[in-house]
Structures are given as structure tokens and as C-alpha cells.
């Protein structure tokens, strides 16, 4: 395994770690708006690390670019979908939680 392969592998692990953090955020955050943050940001960064890690291991520059293109499209998709969900949720009158303390925290 060459140095670049090792860096690529490390990036894949980091990406997977972000996906785990995103899922934990999804389970812990108080309302749909906060959960959007977990999915739209953390998961996208996870995908970015995975695409970059695979791009470093790709056989050709063109393949590497294609991987990054996939990430770009996914970013666009996430931004669009999260905008639509947030706008509709607000229009539907789903109130955002204004304050959330830790479990058992008096706040």
C-alpha cells in the first residue's frame, strides 16, 4: 500500500465517522429543522471525505474528477431538498424548538 493509498483509506474512515455522527445527530436533535442540519451538513461532509478518499485511489484523473462530480451533484440535491423541507415545515406551522437543554438539564 503506497502513501497515497493510505491517505485515501484514512479519508474513507473519516467519512464513515461523519456519517455515524450525522446519524447520532438525527436521533438526538429535537425537531425536523435541527435534524436537517445533521443530514445536510454532516452527512454531506462524510460523502465528501469518501469521494475524496476514493478519488485518491482512482486509476485515472478523469475517474477522480467523476467521483468529485458525484459529490457536487449530491451537494446540490441536499441543499435543494433541505430548503424544500424547511420551507414547507415552516409554512405548515411546525414550530421550531426554541431551546433544548441536555436530558435532565433545567433549561
Amino acid at each position: 500500500m503506497t502513501g497515497i493509498d493510505a491517505i485515501g483509506a484514512a479519508l474513507l474512515w473519516i467519512g464513515a465517522g461523519f456519517f455515524l455522527a450525522g446519524t447520532i445527530g438525527l436521533l438526538r436533535f429535537p425537531d425536523v429543522y435541527a435534524r436537517l442540519h445533521a443530514l445536510a451538513k454532516v452527512d454531506n461532509l462524510g460523502l465528501g471525505f469518501i469521494a475524496l478518499g476514493l478519488a485518491l485511489r482512482a486509476d485515472s484523473l478523469a475517474s477522480a474528477l467523476k467521483l468529485l462530480l458525484v459529490w457536487l451533484l449530491a451537494l446540490f440535491a441536499s441543499a435543494t431538498i433541505s430548503y424544500l423541507i424547511a420551507r414547507r415545515a415552516l409554512a405548515r406551522g411546525i414550530e421550531p424548538v426554541a431551546e433544548m437543554g441536555a436530558d435532565g438539564d433545567q433549561r
Binding site: 445527530g25 438526538r28 429543522y33 451538513k41 462524510g46 421550531p96 433544548m100
Partner: peptide, 24 residues
């Protein structure tokens, strides 16, 4: 900024005492 954003929200999500004060 997207690295910052991802790291920041991930840290919030993983923080043992989750505390958020969202607003619109």
C-alpha cells in the same frame, strides 16, 4: 466553510450534554 459546518454540527451531535438554542 463546509468542513467547519460539518465538524461543528457533528460536535454538537456528539456532545454528551446536548444543548441547542435554535431560532428562525
Amino acid at each position: 466553510q463546509s468542513v467547519r459546518g460539518g465538524v461543528l454540527v457533528a460536535r454538537l451531535a456528539l456532545h454528551p450534554r446536548l444543548r441547542l438554542r435554535p431560532e428562525v
